[in-house]
Design a binder for these strands. Structure first.
Length: 491
RNA sequence: GGUUUCUUGGCCGAGUGGCUAGGCAGCGGUCUGCAAAACCGUGUACGGCGGUUCGAAUCCGCCAGAAACCUCCA
Protein backbone atom coordinates (compact mmCIF):
# COMPACT_ATOMS: atom_id res chain seq x y z
CA UNK A 1 0.00 0.00 0.00
CA UNK A 2 2.98 2.31 0.31
CA UNK A 3 3.98 3.40 -3.20
CA UNK A 4 7.50 2.88 -4.50
CA UNK A 5 9.94 5.56 -3.44
CA UNK A 6 10.77 7.91 -6.25
CA UNK A 7 13.64 10.37 -5.94
CA UNK A 8 14.86 13.22 -8.10
CA UNK A 9 18.24 12.42 -9.55
CA UNK A 10 20.28 15.51 -10.36
CA UNK A 11 22.27 13.45 -12.83
CA UNK A 12 19.27 12.79 -15.07
CA UNK A 13 17.15 15.71 -13.92
CA UNK A 14 14.18 13.45 -13.56
CA UNK A 15 12.42 11.60 -10.81
CA UNK A 16 13.44 7.97 -10.79
CA UNK A 17 12.19 4.98 -8.92
CA UNK A 18 14.67 4.09 -6.20
CA UNK A 19 16.08 0.66 -6.86
CA UNK A 20 18.93 -0.22 -4.56
CA UNK A 21 22.07 -1.89 -5.77
CA UNK A 22 21.59 -4.66 -3.24
CA UNK A 23 18.04 -5.70 -2.48
CA UNK A 24 16.88 -4.57 0.94
CA UNK A 25 19.89 -2.38 1.55
CA UNK A 26 20.60 1.25 0.85
CA UNK A 27 23.91 3.07 0.88
CA UNK A 28 23.76 6.79 1.56
CA UNK A 29 26.59 9.30 1.59
CA UNK A 30 26.05 12.93 2.49
CA UNK A 31 28.52 15.80 2.51
CA UNK A 32 28.90 16.91 6.09
CA UNK A 33 30.16 20.17 7.53
CA UNK A 34 33.54 21.79 7.52
CA UNK A 35 34.02 22.25 11.22
CA UNK A 36 35.54 25.64 11.76
CA UNK A 37 32.69 27.62 13.31
CA UNK A 38 29.21 27.24 14.77
CA UNK A 39 26.57 25.66 12.56
CA UNK A 40 23.96 28.01 11.18
CA UNK A 41 20.42 27.63 9.92
CA UNK A 42 21.67 26.73 6.46
CA UNK A 43 23.40 23.66 7.83
CA UNK A 44 20.17 22.44 9.34
CA UNK A 45 18.70 21.96 5.88
CA UNK A 46 20.74 19.11 4.40
CA UNK A 47 21.00 17.37 7.73
CA UNK A 48 17.26 17.41 8.25
CA UNK A 49 16.54 16.57 4.61
CA UNK A 50 18.78 13.54 4.59
CA UNK A 51 17.73 12.60 8.09
CA UNK A 52 14.23 12.39 6.64
CA UNK A 53 15.52 10.23 3.82
CA UNK A 54 17.42 8.01 6.24
CA UNK A 55 14.40 7.65 8.47
CA UNK A 56 12.05 6.98 5.58
CA UNK A 57 14.29 4.38 3.98
CA UNK A 58 14.55 2.72 7.36
CA UNK A 59 10.79 2.83 7.78
CA UNK A 60 10.38 1.25 4.36
CA UNK A 61 12.42 -1.66 5.63
CA UNK A 62 15.80 -0.95 4.09
CA UNK A 63 18.89 -1.68 6.05
CA UNK A 64 20.61 1.63 5.53
CA UNK A 65 24.26 2.48 5.87
CA UNK A 66 24.40 6.23 6.26
CA UNK A 67 27.82 7.83 5.95
CA UNK A 68 28.26 11.53 6.62
CA UNK A 69 31.73 12.97 6.67
CA UNK A 70 33.38 15.63 8.77
CA UNK A 71 35.67 17.87 6.78
CA UNK A 72 38.47 18.67 9.16
CA UNK A 73 41.30 19.32 6.76
CA UNK A 74 39.91 22.63 5.57
CA UNK A 75 39.29 24.06 2.19
CA UNK A 76 41.26 26.63 0.34
CA UNK A 77 40.35 30.25 0.46
CA UNK A 78 42.14 31.43 -2.61
CA UNK A 79 40.19 34.57 -3.08
CA UNK A 80 40.03 35.81 0.46
CA UNK A 81 43.42 34.66 1.60
CA UNK A 82 46.22 35.20 -0.80
CA UNK A 83 48.37 32.94 1.28
CA UNK A 84 46.05 30.14 0.39
CA UNK A 85 45.81 28.92 3.92
CA UNK A 86 42.82 26.85 4.78
CA UNK A 87 39.88 27.76 6.91
CA UNK A 88 40.79 25.62 9.83
CA UNK A 89 44.37 26.73 10.19
CA UNK A 90 43.35 30.33 9.77
CA UNK A 91 40.86 30.01 12.57
CA UNK A 92 43.45 28.24 14.68
CA UNK A 93 45.82 31.14 14.30
CA UNK A 94 43.12 33.58 15.36
CA UNK A 95 42.21 31.61 18.40
CA UNK A 96 45.76 30.55 19.23
CA UNK A 97 44.96 26.91 19.49
CA UNK A 98 45.75 23.69 17.71
CA UNK A 99 43.89 23.04 14.45
CA UNK A 100 42.54 19.80 15.85
CA UNK A 101 41.27 21.72 18.84
CA UNK A 102 39.22 23.90 16.51
CA UNK A 103 37.96 20.79 14.79
CA UNK A 104 37.00 19.12 18.04
CA UNK A 105 35.28 22.18 19.41
CA UNK A 106 33.07 22.78 16.41
CA UNK A 107 32.48 19.12 15.75
CA UNK A 108 31.13 18.85 19.28
CA UNK A 109 28.86 21.83 18.84
CA UNK A 110 27.68 20.48 15.50
CA UNK A 111 26.80 17.17 17.09
CA UNK A 112 25.02 18.92 19.91
CA UNK A 113 22.97 21.02 17.49
CA UNK A 114 22.07 17.93 15.49
CA UNK A 115 20.86 16.17 18.63
CA UNK A 116 18.75 19.19 19.46
CA UNK A 117 17.21 18.98 16.01
CA UNK A 118 16.61 15.26 16.54
CA UNK A 119 18.84 14.42 13.59
CA UNK A 120 19.95 10.83 13.92
CA UNK A 121 23.64 10.14 13.95
CA UNK A 122 24.97 8.52 10.79
CA UNK A 123 26.27 4.97 10.93
CA UNK A 124 29.75 6.09 10.01
CA UNK A 125 31.12 9.60 10.35
CA UNK A 126 34.53 9.53 8.73
CA UNK A 127 36.94 12.41 8.96
CA UNK A 128 39.12 13.59 6.16
CA UNK A 129 42.16 13.79 8.42
CA UNK A 130 41.76 10.12 9.22
CA UNK A 131 41.92 9.10 5.58
CA UNK A 132 45.07 10.77 4.33
CA UNK A 133 46.62 7.49 3.26
CA UNK A 134 43.54 6.42 1.35
CA UNK A 135 43.46 9.78 -0.36
CA UNK A 136 47.08 9.42 -1.38
CA UNK A 137 46.29 5.99 -2.77
CA UNK A 138 43.51 7.39 -4.89
CA UNK A 139 45.84 10.05 -6.20
CA UNK A 140 48.26 7.27 -7.11
CA UNK A 141 45.67 5.48 -9.14
CA UNK A 142 44.52 8.65 -10.89
CA UNK A 143 48.15 9.42 -11.72
CA UNK A 144 48.68 5.88 -12.91
CA UNK A 145 45.66 6.13 -15.18
CA UNK A 146 47.09 9.30 -16.65
CA UNK A 147 44.49 11.80 -15.49
CA UNK A 148 46.70 13.83 -13.18
CA UNK A 149 50.10 15.46 -13.18
CA UNK A 150 52.55 16.55 -10.56
CA UNK A 151 54.00 20.02 -10.40
CA UNK A 152 56.29 21.39 -7.69
CA UNK A 153 55.06 19.09 -4.97
CA UNK A 154 51.39 19.44 -5.88
CA UNK A 155 49.26 17.07 -7.92
CA UNK A 156 46.51 18.38 -10.19
CA UNK A 157 43.66 16.68 -11.94
CA UNK A 158 43.91 16.98 -15.71
CA UNK A 159 40.38 17.95 -16.63
CA UNK A 160 40.99 18.33 -20.34
CA UNK A 161 42.51 14.88 -20.63
CA UNK A 162 39.68 13.41 -18.60
CA UNK A 163 37.13 15.11 -20.80
CA UNK A 164 38.56 13.47 -23.90
CA UNK A 165 37.50 10.10 -22.58
CA UNK A 166 34.68 10.94 -20.23
CA UNK A 167 32.31 13.82 -19.80
CA UNK A 168 33.32 16.50 -17.36
CA UNK A 169 30.31 18.61 -16.36
CA UNK A 170 27.58 16.04 -16.80
CA UNK A 171 26.13 16.57 -13.34
CA UNK A 172 25.90 20.34 -13.45
CA UNK A 173 25.02 20.57 -17.12
CA UNK A 174 28.18 22.28 -18.23
CA UNK A 175 30.56 21.53 -21.00
CA UNK A 176 34.25 22.16 -20.97
CA UNK A 177 34.14 24.76 -23.72
CA UNK A 178 31.83 26.92 -21.65
CA UNK A 179 33.97 26.49 -18.61
CA UNK A 180 37.05 27.41 -20.59
CA UNK A 181 35.66 30.71 -21.78
CA UNK A 182 34.04 31.59 -18.49
CA UNK A 183 36.43 30.57 -15.79
CA UNK A 184 37.90 33.53 -14.05
CA UNK A 185 41.64 33.82 -13.88
CA UNK A 186 42.82 33.37 -10.32
CA UNK A 187 46.20 34.08 -8.82
CA UNK A 188 48.73 31.37 -8.23
CA UNK A 189 47.43 29.12 -10.93
CA UNK A 190 50.49 29.10 -13.09
CA UNK A 191 51.30 25.55 -12.03
CA UNK A 192 48.16 24.22 -13.60
CA UNK A 193 47.90 23.32 -17.25
CA UNK A 194 44.44 24.82 -17.29
CA UNK A 195 42.66 27.08 -14.86
CA UNK A 196 39.87 24.57 -14.44
CA UNK A 197 42.22 21.83 -13.26
CA UNK A 198 41.84 21.20 -9.53
CA UNK A 199 44.23 20.07 -6.84
CA UNK A 200 44.37 16.50 -5.64
CA UNK A 201 47.34 17.19 -3.43
CA UNK A 202 48.58 20.61 -2.50
CA UNK A 203 52.05 21.43 -1.33
CA UNK A 204 51.95 23.09 2.08
CA UNK A 205 53.40 26.55 2.32
CA UNK A 206 55.77 26.97 5.29
CA UNK A 207 53.15 28.73 7.39
CA UNK A 208 50.49 26.17 6.65
CA UNK A 209 49.81 24.33 9.88
CA UNK A 210 47.90 21.28 8.69
CA UNK A 211 50.25 19.11 6.70
CA UNK A 212 51.06 15.49 6.08
CA UNK A 213 54.03 13.77 4.49
CA UNK A 214 53.68 12.27 1.04
CA UNK A 215 55.83 11.12 -1.83
CA UNK A 216 55.26 14.56 -3.37
CA UNK A 217 56.45 16.34 -0.26
CA UNK A 218 54.62 17.79 2.73
CA UNK A 219 51.16 18.91 1.91
CA UNK A 220 47.48 18.27 2.28
CA UNK A 221 44.75 16.69 0.17
CA UNK A 222 42.70 18.67 -2.32
CA UNK A 223 39.22 19.95 -1.71
CA UNK A 224 37.18 17.28 -3.36
CA UNK A 225 39.12 14.13 -2.76
CA UNK A 226 37.93 13.10 0.68
CA UNK A 227 34.36 12.45 -0.45
CA UNK A 228 35.39 10.27 -3.37
CA UNK A 229 37.65 8.30 -1.07
CA UNK A 230 35.48 7.91 1.97
CA UNK A 231 32.23 7.21 0.15
CA UNK A 232 33.71 4.35 -1.83
CA UNK A 233 35.68 3.05 1.13
CA UNK A 234 32.58 2.56 3.24
CA UNK A 235 29.86 2.05 0.65
CA UNK A 236 31.67 0.35 -2.17
CA UNK A 237 32.98 1.36 -5.56
CA UNK A 238 29.41 1.82 -6.58
CA UNK A 239 26.68 2.88 -4.18
CA UNK A 240 23.14 4.17 -4.14
CA UNK A 241 22.67 7.76 -3.04
CA UNK A 242 24.94 10.74 -2.61
CA UNK A 243 23.43 13.86 -1.10
CA UNK A 244 24.46 17.40 -0.36
CA UNK A 245 23.58 21.04 -0.84
CA UNK A 246 22.86 22.36 -4.32
CA UNK A 247 25.77 24.73 -4.02
CA UNK A 248 28.07 21.73 -4.00
CA UNK A 249 26.92 20.46 -7.37
CA UNK A 250 29.65 22.36 -9.11
CA UNK A 251 32.49 22.06 -8.72
CA UNK A 252 32.58 19.76 -5.70
CA UNK A 253 30.39 16.89 -6.87
CA UNK A 254 31.44 17.27 -10.46
CA UNK A 255 35.02 16.79 -9.36
CA UNK A 256 34.05 13.83 -7.22
CA UNK A 257 32.58 12.13 -10.26
CA UNK A 258 35.71 12.88 -12.24
CA UNK A 259 38.01 11.55 -9.52
CA UNK A 260 36.08 8.36 -8.97
CA UNK A 261 35.80 7.72 -12.66
CA UNK A 262 39.45 8.50 -13.31
CA UNK A 263 40.46 6.20 -10.53
CA UNK A 264 37.99 3.34 -10.86
CA UNK A 265 37.07 3.54 -14.51
CA UNK A 266 33.41 4.01 -13.71
CA UNK A 267 31.15 6.26 -11.71
CA UNK A 268 30.29 5.49 -8.13
CA UNK A 269 27.04 7.26 -7.47
CA UNK A 270 23.72 6.08 -8.83
CA UNK A 271 21.41 8.80 -7.46
CA UNK A 272 22.56 12.33 -6.75
CA UNK A 273 20.27 14.32 -4.49
CA UNK A 274 20.63 18.01 -3.74
CA UNK A 275 18.78 20.13 -1.24
CA UNK A 276 18.10 23.78 -1.99
CA UNK A 277 19.24 26.75 0.06
CA UNK A 278 17.73 28.69 2.91
CA UNK A 279 17.47 32.32 1.95
CA UNK A 280 17.17 35.47 3.97
CA UNK A 281 15.68 38.48 2.22
CA UNK A 282 15.74 36.37 -0.90
CA UNK A 283 19.46 35.75 -0.73
CA UNK A 284 21.29 32.60 0.22
CA UNK A 285 22.24 32.35 3.86
CA UNK A 286 25.96 31.69 3.93
CA UNK A 287 28.87 32.07 6.23
CA UNK A 288 30.78 33.89 3.54
CA UNK A 289 27.96 36.39 2.97
CA UNK A 290 27.76 37.14 6.68
CA UNK A 291 23.95 36.95 6.66
CA UNK A 292 23.69 33.81 8.71
CA UNK A 293 22.01 33.01 12.00
CA UNK A 294 23.59 30.24 14.02
CA UNK A 295 21.47 27.45 15.42
CA UNK A 296 22.45 28.42 18.94
CA UNK A 297 21.22 31.96 18.28
CA UNK A 298 17.96 30.62 16.91
CA UNK A 299 17.40 28.41 19.92
CA UNK A 300 18.16 31.23 22.36
CA UNK A 301 16.84 34.19 20.40
CA UNK A 302 20.14 36.02 20.64
CA UNK A 303 20.39 37.66 17.25
CA UNK A 304 19.15 41.05 16.16
CA UNK A 305 17.20 39.51 13.31
CA UNK A 306 15.19 37.38 15.70
CA UNK A 307 12.05 38.60 17.42
CA UNK A 308 12.11 35.60 19.74
CA UNK A 309 13.77 32.25 20.32
CA UNK A 310 12.64 29.33 18.19
CA UNK A 311 12.81 25.80 19.48
CA UNK A 312 14.73 23.11 17.62
CA UNK A 313 11.50 21.39 16.66
CA UNK A 314 10.09 24.61 15.29
CA UNK A 315 13.15 24.87 13.07
CA UNK A 316 12.82 21.26 12.01
CA UNK A 317 9.12 21.66 11.25
CA UNK A 318 9.79 24.90 9.39
CA UNK A 319 12.26 23.13 7.14
CA UNK A 320 10.01 20.12 6.62
CA UNK A 321 7.14 22.40 5.60
CA UNK A 322 9.01 23.24 2.41
CA UNK A 323 10.06 20.72 -0.19
CA UNK A 324 13.79 20.07 0.01
CA UNK A 325 14.40 21.16 -3.59
CA UNK A 326 12.76 24.56 -3.10
CA UNK A 327 14.41 27.51 -1.50
CA UNK A 328 12.88 28.42 1.82
CA UNK A 329 12.94 31.98 2.99
CA UNK A 330 13.71 32.83 6.58
CA UNK A 331 11.46 35.30 8.35
CA UNK A 332 10.12 35.69 11.85
CA UNK A 333 6.61 35.53 10.48
CA UNK A 334 7.23 32.21 8.77
CA UNK A 335 8.89 30.71 11.84
CA UNK A 336 6.09 31.87 14.10
CA UNK A 337 3.60 30.28 11.72
CA UNK A 338 5.56 27.03 11.93
CA UNK A 339 5.71 27.24 15.69
CA UNK A 340 1.96 27.52 15.97
CA UNK A 341 1.30 24.89 13.35
CA UNK A 342 3.60 22.46 15.09
CA UNK A 343 1.91 23.13 18.40
CA UNK A 344 -1.43 22.34 16.83
CA UNK A 345 -0.11 19.10 15.44
CA UNK A 346 1.50 18.05 18.70
CA UNK A 347 -1.60 18.92 20.68
CA UNK A 348 -3.57 16.66 18.37
CA UNK A 349 -1.02 13.90 19.00
CA UNK A 350 -1.75 14.24 22.69
CA UNK A 351 -5.49 14.35 22.10
CA UNK A 352 -5.29 11.23 20.00
CA UNK A 353 -4.00 9.29 22.99
CA UNK A 354 -7.02 10.31 25.02
CA UNK A 355 -9.79 9.57 22.55
CA UNK A 356 -12.42 7.01 23.44
CA UNK A 357 -13.31 4.47 20.78
CA UNK A 358 -16.81 4.22 19.34
CA UNK A 359 -18.74 1.30 17.89
CA UNK A 360 -18.23 2.50 14.36
CA UNK A 361 -16.23 5.13 12.57
CA UNK A 362 -18.01 8.01 10.91
CA UNK A 363 -14.97 9.07 8.91
CA UNK A 364 -12.64 7.32 6.55
CA UNK A 365 -9.04 7.55 7.66
CA UNK A 366 -7.53 5.37 4.96
CA UNK A 367 -7.29 8.23 2.46
CA UNK A 368 -5.21 10.35 4.80
CA UNK A 369 -2.81 7.54 5.40
CA UNK A 370 -2.49 6.70 1.76
CA UNK A 371 -2.10 10.31 0.66
CA UNK A 372 0.53 10.89 3.26
CA UNK A 373 2.69 7.97 2.19
CA UNK A 374 2.14 8.78 -1.46
CA UNK A 375 3.56 12.23 -0.77
CA UNK A 376 6.56 10.92 1.14
CA UNK A 377 7.33 8.40 -1.55
CA UNK A 378 7.13 11.14 -4.17
CA UNK A 379 10.62 12.52 -3.71
CA UNK A 380 10.13 13.13 0.00
CA UNK A 381 7.30 15.58 -0.32
CA UNK A 382 7.12 16.39 3.37
CA UNK A 383 5.02 19.56 2.99
CA UNK A 384 2.24 17.64 1.31
CA UNK A 385 2.52 14.83 3.84
CA UNK A 386 2.18 17.41 6.61
CA UNK A 387 -0.85 18.93 4.90
CA UNK A 388 -2.52 15.52 5.04
CA UNK A 389 -1.56 15.16 8.68
CA UNK A 390 -3.45 18.37 9.37
CA UNK A 391 -6.53 16.92 7.75
CA UNK A 392 -6.26 14.17 10.30
CA UNK A 393 -5.86 16.75 13.05
CA UNK A 394 -9.27 18.07 12.12
CA UNK A 395 -10.70 14.57 12.45
CA UNK A 396 -8.98 14.00 15.80
CA UNK A 397 -10.37 17.24 17.18
CA UNK A 398 -13.81 16.49 15.82
CA UNK A 399 -13.78 13.12 17.52
CA UNK A 400 -12.81 14.81 20.74
CA UNK A 401 -15.63 17.31 20.29
CA UNK A 402 -18.02 14.43 19.64
CA UNK A 403 -18.99 15.39 16.12
CA UNK A 404 -17.19 12.42 14.58
CA UNK A 405 -16.46 8.92 15.81
CA UNK A 406 -13.64 6.41 15.37
CA UNK A 407 -13.84 2.69 15.99
CA UNK A 408 -11.32 0.99 18.22
CA UNK A 409 -9.45 -0.46 15.27
CA UNK A 410 -9.39 2.84 13.38
CA UNK A 411 -8.24 4.58 16.51
CA UNK A 412 -5.41 2.11 16.94
CA UNK A 413 -4.50 2.57 13.31
CA UNK A 414 -4.50 6.34 13.66
CA UNK A 415 -2.24 6.11 16.69
CA UNK A 416 0.32 3.95 15.01
CA UNK A 417 0.12 5.95 11.78
CA UNK A 418 0.67 9.29 13.51
CA UNK A 419 3.42 7.88 15.66
CA UNK A 420 5.14 6.42 12.60
CA UNK A 421 4.94 9.54 10.50
CA UNK A 422 5.31 12.32 13.05
CA UNK A 423 7.87 10.78 15.36
CA UNK A 424 9.70 8.11 13.37
CA UNK A 425 9.72 9.54 9.85
CA UNK A 426 9.47 13.31 10.24
CA UNK A 427 11.54 13.03 13.39
CA UNK A 428 9.50 15.48 15.43
CA UNK A 429 9.30 15.17 19.18
CA UNK A 430 7.32 16.77 21.95
CA UNK A 431 8.84 19.79 23.62
CA UNK A 432 7.86 21.95 26.57
CA UNK A 433 5.99 19.32 28.46
CA UNK A 434 5.27 21.64 31.34
CA UNK A 435 3.29 19.73 33.94
CA UNK A 436 5.84 16.98 33.96
CA UNK A 437 8.84 19.24 34.01
CA UNK A 438 12.15 17.64 34.75
CA UNK A 439 12.56 19.66 37.89
CA UNK A 440 10.45 18.09 40.64
CA UNK A 441 11.04 20.92 43.06
CA UNK A 442 9.78 23.45 40.54
CA UNK A 443 6.84 21.22 39.69
CA UNK A 444 5.90 20.94 43.33
CA UNK A 445 6.10 24.69 43.85
CA UNK A 446 3.98 25.43 40.83
CA UNK A 447 1.43 22.82 41.81
CA UNK A 448 1.14 24.52 45.20
CA UNK A 449 0.49 27.88 43.53
CA UNK A 450 -2.06 26.24 41.29
CA UNK A 451 -3.97 24.90 44.25
CA UNK A 452 -3.81 28.27 46.06
CA UNK A 453 -5.14 29.92 42.95
CA UNK A 454 -7.87 27.34 42.72
CA UNK A 455 -8.98 28.23 46.23
CA UNK A 456 -8.92 31.92 45.39
CA UNK A 457 -11.03 31.26 42.34
CA UNK A 458 -13.47 29.23 44.36
CA UNK A 459 -13.87 32.28 46.62
CA UNK A 460 -14.23 34.50 43.58
CA UNK A 461 -11.09 36.30 44.74
CA UNK A 462 -10.12 37.28 41.22
CA UNK A 463 -7.47 39.72 42.38
CA UNK A 464 -5.45 36.94 43.98
CA UNK A 465 -5.99 34.41 41.21
CA UNK A 466 -5.00 36.91 38.53
CA UNK A 467 -1.99 37.98 40.54
CA UNK A 468 -0.69 34.43 40.75
CA UNK A 469 -1.14 33.91 37.04
CA UNK A 470 0.30 37.27 36.02
CA UNK A 471 3.32 37.15 38.27
CA UNK A 472 4.18 33.62 37.29
CA UNK A 473 3.92 34.82 33.71
CA UNK A 474 6.39 37.59 34.45
CA UNK A 475 8.82 35.08 35.91
CA UNK A 476 8.49 32.90 32.83
CA UNK A 477 5.82 30.36 33.68
CA UNK A 478 2.73 30.38 31.52
CA UNK A 479 -0.46 29.21 33.18
CA UNK A 480 -3.66 28.48 31.33
CA UNK A 481 -7.09 27.46 32.53
CA UNK A 482 -8.57 24.76 30.38
CA UNK A 483 -11.65 22.60 30.64
CA UNK A 484 -9.54 19.74 31.92
CA UNK A 485 -7.76 21.73 34.57
CA UNK A 486 -4.78 24.03 34.70
CA UNK A 487 -1.90 23.68 32.26
CA UNK A 488 1.42 25.32 32.75
CA UNK A 489 4.75 25.39 31.01
CA UNK A 490 8.01 27.24 31.01
CA UNK A 491 8.03 29.91 28.36
C1' G B 1 28.48 36.89 -20.05
C1' G B 2 27.55 31.22 -19.53
C1' U B 3 24.74 27.16 -16.96
C1' U B 4 20.42 26.00 -14.08
C1' U B 5 16.02 27.45 -11.77
C1' C B 6 12.17 30.35 -9.83
C1' U B 7 7.83 34.21 -9.84
C1' U B 8 1.06 31.24 -6.43
C1' G B 9 -4.03 34.75 -2.09
C1' G B 10 -1.95 39.56 3.83
C1' C B 11 2.62 36.04 5.05
C1' C B 12 4.84 31.11 4.33
C1' G B 13 4.32 27.19 1.10
C1' A B 14 2.38 22.58 -2.09
C1' G B 15 0.39 21.06 -6.52
C1' U B 16 -1.69 20.50 -11.15
C1' G B 17 -4.07 20.73 -18.35
C1' G B 18 -10.69 20.63 -16.21
C1' C B 19 -11.79 18.21 -9.49
C1' U B 20 -11.24 23.52 -2.25
C1' A B 21 -3.37 21.51 -0.75
C1' G B 22 -1.93 22.82 4.05
C1' G B 23 -0.07 26.19 7.95
C1' C B 24 -0.04 31.27 10.01
C1' A B 25 -2.58 35.85 10.16
C1' G B 26 -7.63 38.09 9.49
C1' C B 27 -12.91 37.56 10.13
C1' G B 28 -17.31 34.95 12.46
C1' G B 29 -18.58 31.55 16.31
C1' U B 30 -18.00 28.00 20.78
C1' C B 31 -15.80 27.96 25.55
C1' U B 32 -14.45 31.32 29.76
C1' G B 33 -15.17 35.44 36.17
C1' C B 34 -11.42 37.75 33.10
C1' A B 35 -7.24 36.61 30.08
C1' A B 36 -4.83 33.42 27.13
C1' A B 37 -5.15 29.10 24.78
C1' A B 38 -7.93 25.58 22.38
C1' C B 39 -11.71 24.08 18.99
C1' C B 40 -15.20 24.81 14.76
C1' G B 41 -16.35 27.65 10.35
C1' U B 42 -14.57 31.06 6.62
C1' G B 43 -10.80 33.13 1.81
C1' U B 44 -10.86 31.16 -4.64
C1' A B 45 -4.56 33.20 -5.72
C1' C B 46 -1.25 31.58 -9.41
C1' G B 47 4.45 38.08 -12.69
C1' G B 48 3.02 40.55 -17.84
C1' C B 49 1.78 39.72 -23.09
C1' G B 50 0.80 36.31 -26.86
C1' G B 51 0.08 31.11 -28.64
C1' U B 52 -1.59 25.68 -28.43
C1' U B 53 -6.30 23.55 -26.46
C1' C B 54 -13.20 22.40 -25.91
C1' G B 55 -10.54 24.17 -21.46
C1' A B 56 -4.08 26.64 -18.74
C1' A B 57 -2.17 29.04 -13.07
C1' U B 58 -0.37 24.11 -15.17
C1' C B 59 2.26 23.12 -22.13
C1' C B 60 5.04 26.63 -25.83
C1' G B 61 7.16 31.55 -27.05
C1' C B 62 8.48 36.46 -25.80
C1' C B 63 9.03 40.23 -21.97
C1' A B 64 9.85 41.78 -16.83
C1' G B 65 11.83 40.60 -12.07
C1' A B 66 14.60 37.34 -8.70
C1' A B 67 17.95 33.48 -7.20
C1' A B 68 21.80 29.58 -7.24
C1' C B 69 26.26 27.96 -9.57
C1' C B 70 30.52 29.49 -12.67
C1' U B 71 35.31 31.10 -6.41
C1' C B 72 35.28 28.39 -0.20
C1' C B 73 30.09 27.50 0.80
C1' A B 74 24.89 23.18 3.32
Amino acid sequence: MIPDLVIYNTLTRTKEKFEPLVAGRAGLYVCGPTVYSDSHLGHARPNITFDLLYRYLTFLGYKVRYVRNITDVGHMEDEVEETGEDKISKKARLEQIEPMEVVQKYMNSFHYNMQQLNVLAPNIEPRASGHIIEQQLMIDSILKNGFAYEKNGSVYFDVEKYNQQYQYGKLSGRNLDDIKTNTRQLDGQSEKKNSFDFALWKKAAPEHIMRWPSKWGEGFPGWHLECSVMSTKYLGEQFDIHGGGMDLTFPHHECEIAQSTASLGHESVRYWMHNNMITIDGQKMARSLGNFITLRELFTGSNKLLQQAYSPMTIRFFILQAHYRSTVDFSNEALQASEKGLERLMNAMKTLEELAPAEQSTVDISAIKENCFTALSDDLNSPVAIAHLFEGVKIINSVKAGTEKLSASDLAEMKSFYSNVVFDILGLRAENIGGSAQNEVLSGAVELLISLRKEAKANKDWATSDRIRNELNTIGIEMKDTKDGVEWKLK
